[in-house]
Design a protein around this nucleic acid. Structure first.
Length: 501
RNA sequence: GGGCCAUUAGCUCAACAGGUAGAGCAACUGCCUCUUAAGCAGGAGGUUGGAGGUUCGAUUCCUCCAUGGCCCA
């Protein structure tokens, strides 16, 4: 129904009907407006590499074939210039009636900005020294029916950019760069871990019992099995089952889903890296994390410093600084949180510090808020924050000398939380106690049955080796490396409400 | 969930204090064989996000709704 509505809209849109008319005229002239294929000899970047040094008015004898989208047109009667664009760059083409022939030039005059074309011709340099193709043969590869955004200002409307990313990519050059960097970062992760002998695995995205984090899940239903399933909020418990099974070094680049608010740093589906290594612990994970991010920076950015949100960040000063959570809180708030125990004391501390919280916020959420407002934004250079309270970290192993704290760290760069890691709790009896307590207190996030994952506990009972686990927010890492201030700028198709109107 | 802001031609933006909406690009019709934000001439393009209200008159003021952005929860 909606589609029909859109088609009616299209029909009344003058610009589109003009192009449809041209398409019909081209058909009448015997042009296949949506042909099957086209043989390319070069990408535009290859032409530039090979002939970038041509002097003004210099010609070559090599015939090349390129394909791409028309981005601009400058007609001058019996000759025209245009720019075409492929994935690798832009190049000027020069079309003359006396070279192309009268009929083919007439056909060309029906082309529009946005059309996909193939050109065959010789590389040359114009009077002003711009590398160009003297077109000898021109083929329409696909007719474009919708006008592109303006050539100079591009597409600025943020909503349209996110909803119609295909056009954002066509007209806004930097957007492609961000997603190329994203791809390189993920490649860099795989290369780094594979070289260390880690095994990449895939675990269920649809889980009947959710775990590994406190968050509201998405619910779905399997018809044939007639059972409810949740989309995973984390792959953690499955990856640790694999370590029980003897896969000692595993990782998963995983899409996870959380049924919570959207913001500049939260998309309902997001990408994480989770890594588990048997016989290691959170110290080992700190070392791994530091080396991995540094190696990715060198590979992707070619250096170990960069600018994020007007701050210069230097990853090269190894080891990265480490502070305990309570130490940082004391330094920045003046309060000693080791003495703050109950919920009411935590509320008092928040009130005193002018930090707002919801009436039903549990203690750890309030502490998070205090940390975010007083400490997090100041952690610009890479910083490991260590030793979190045990009551907020049910899957982490307690510190040997202080059972109230766990062996856990979070990594902050540029004021953003990028990683979270612990020495994994492998005592099945202790794990059961903590899970049962969570279920009792319903401290797992709303929207799901509070349920102990019995199969996970059974796996632990067989024996999980001492193990370090590390999670890295891949979207956040891309944000930091590409200096993007919204997660929506690093996700190709961010979640939006349904389009209206 | 709350607050503030935005929504005007295909795109980017104007419109004083409420007086019937303008420009550039794109498109259209001509002219033009080294242009490059090509140029010159001409004509066209709008239910100002939607629905109500106030007013002689609303893009402008008010209410509600939709979508988006930023901040807070």
């Amino acid at each position: 129904m909606e589609e029909k509505g859109n088609n009616i809209m299209d029909e009344i849109n003058k610009l589109i009907s003009e192009r449809k008319q041209k398409l019909e005229e081209l058909r009448k002239l015997g042009v296949d407006v949506y042909p099957r294929n086209f043989s390319i000899t070069h990408a535009i970047s290859q032409v530039r590499e090979k002939y970038g040094t041509l002097k003004a008015e210099e010609k070559t004898e090599e015939t090349v074939s390129l394909a791409g989208r028309i981005m601009s047109l400058r007609g001058m009667g019996k000759a025209s210039f245009a720019h075409m664009k492929d994935q690798t760059g832009k190049l000027q083409i020069y079309i003359r009636e006396d070279v192309l022939g009268e009929r083919n030039y007439q056909i060309f005059r029906k082309f529009d900005i946005g059309d996909l074309i193939g050109v065959t011709g010789k590389v040359f340099s114009t009077k002003t020294g711009e590398l160009s193709i003297q077109v000898e043969d021109l083929t329409l590869l696909a007719k474009s029916l919708r006008p592109l955004p303006e050539k100079w200002h591009g597409l600025k409307d943020i909503e349209t950019r996110y909803r119609q990313r295909y056009i954002d990519l066509v007209v806004n050059e930097q957007v492609k760069d961000v997603f190329c960097t994203r791809s390189l970062i993920i490649k860099g992760i795989r290369k780094f871990l594979d070289n260390l002998g880690f095994l990449e695995v895939e675990t269920p995205m649809m889980q009947s019992v959710v775990g590994g984090a406190a968050a509201k899940p998405f619910l779905t239903h399997h018809q044939a099995l007639d059972m409810n399933l949740y989309l995973r909020i984390s792959p953690e418990l499955f990856l640790k089952r694999l370590v029980v099974g003897g896969l000692e070094k595993v990782y998963e680049v995983n899409r996870s889903f959380r049924n919570e608010g959207v913001s500049t740093r939260h998309n309902p589906e997001f990408t994480m890296l989770e890594v588990y290594q048997a016989y290691s612990d959170y110290n080992g994970m700190m070392d791994l994390c530091q080396k991995m991010i540094l190696s990715i920076a060198k590979e992707v950015l070619g250096k170990d410093d960069f600018v994020y949100q007007e701050n210069k960040i230097n990853l090269g000063k190894i080891p990265w600084q480490r502070f305990s959570l309570y130490e940082l809180l004391k330094e920045h708030t003046g309060l000693d949180f080791t003495n703050i125990h109950g919920l009411s004391e935590m509320r008092k501390a928040a009130d005193r510090l002018n930090v707002k919280y919801k009436k039903d916020s549990p203690k750890h959420k309030i502490l998070d808020h205090i940390f975010e407002s007083y400490v997090q934004k100041k952690l610009i250079q890479p910083t490991f924050v260590l030793d979190y309270p045990a009551e907020f970290s049910p899957l982490a192993k307690a510190k040997k000398d202080n059972p109230e704290l766990v062996e856990r760290f979070e990594l902050f760069i540029g004021g953003e939380e990028l990683a979270n890691a612990y020495s994994e709790l492998n005592d099945p009896v202790e794990q059961r106690k903590r899970m049962e307590k969570q279920v009792e207190e319903k401290d797992i996030g709303e929207g799901r049955e509070a349920e102990v994952d019995e199969d996970y506990l059974r796996a632990l009972e067989y024996g999980l080796p001492p193990c370090g686990g590390l999670g890295i927010g891949v979207d956040r890492l891309v944000m930091v490396f590409t200096n993007s201030n919204s997660i929506r700028d690093v996700i190709l198709f961010p979640q939006m409400r349904k389009e209206t109107g």
